[in-house]
Write a protein that binds this DNA or RNA. Structure first.
Lengths: 134, 134
DNA sequence: TTTCCAATTATAATTATTATTATCTAGAAC
DNA sequence: GTTCTAGATAATAATAATTATAATTGGAAA
């Protein structure tokens, strides 16, 4: 696949299948979902390969690992900064552009009734910053 | 413990020990941390009891279950709406009042260097809403 | 005091994820 | 195009967090 050239690691058919499944995917799939879909076309696919590929892509910044669902990690191919709207019942996840921090416009809400929000600020604490410096 | 009367479920010594450990705790401990601390004073304490108690408190709204850390669930006795500042290295979690959505003042940052943020909006999607209605 | 029942304990089971290892292959070098 | 090898795959074992099961216990209520 030409389009994935220079992604920075060895391109195997398995990895291309994962990349293709993820491309433009808005479902925020779990490793299990990726596995079950990719292995349809690639029956020899191993679960470990899915985990390896997802971790490799995450480490290289091609994929976000979401911790929204306590039961399983979810993966987001949209690496541009954005927020999420989450159904508390079925754990459906919808992307929300960063410009909407207070009010989400109707056309993006998708019929959701929004009941709350939570902001996670990320950084490095002074203790860990110092550890790294040494 | 008078203060925990009428909490809505049977108060056992084990549960009181968990409640006392959690009270005013700002560490956002995991089940493992709760277990290891509570079992110091309560050596017969079982891991299942910790999980049961945390789930019972969470279900009754006395405790928030945080999904910030992919590796383990963390628990927050502060049930008033608030946000979190998270060290990406050590997973330390600091409470941030809801009034600070854009800029966190120096005295709350605790020396953190803040590099990003992510908002989770919660709600119920139309599909799940309908399911519930039936 | 006795009965009853929900909570606890001990432990087994489950689920997601990571590690191990032998084998294989993509892609660089010739 | 062939060869070579670092890195990838597949199969499987291991680990860690969490949940389920079943027997036991202890305290509330009769």
């Amino acid at each position: 696949m030409k389009k994935y050239r220079d992604i920075g690691f060895k391109l195997t058919p398995q990895r291309i299948a994962v990349l293709e499944y993820l491309e433009n995917n808005k479902e925020h799939p779990s490793a299990e979902t990726v596995y079950s879909n990719v292995s349809k076309k690639f029956p020899t696919m191993s679960f470990a390969t899915v985990y390896n590929t997802l971790a490799a892509l995450r480490d290289r910044g091609y994929l976000l690992e979401l911790t929204i669902d306590a039961d399983k990690r979810r993966y987001d191919p949209n690496i541009h900064p954005h927020h999420h709207l989450i159904c508390k019942v079925c754990k459906k996840i919808i992307d929300i552009p960063t410009e909407y921090m207070l009010q989400i416009p109707e056309h993006l809400r998708g019929g959701f009734e929004i009941t709350g929000n939570h902001i996670e600020f990320y950084g490095v604490c002074p203790e860990c910053k110092q550890q790294r410096a040494t």
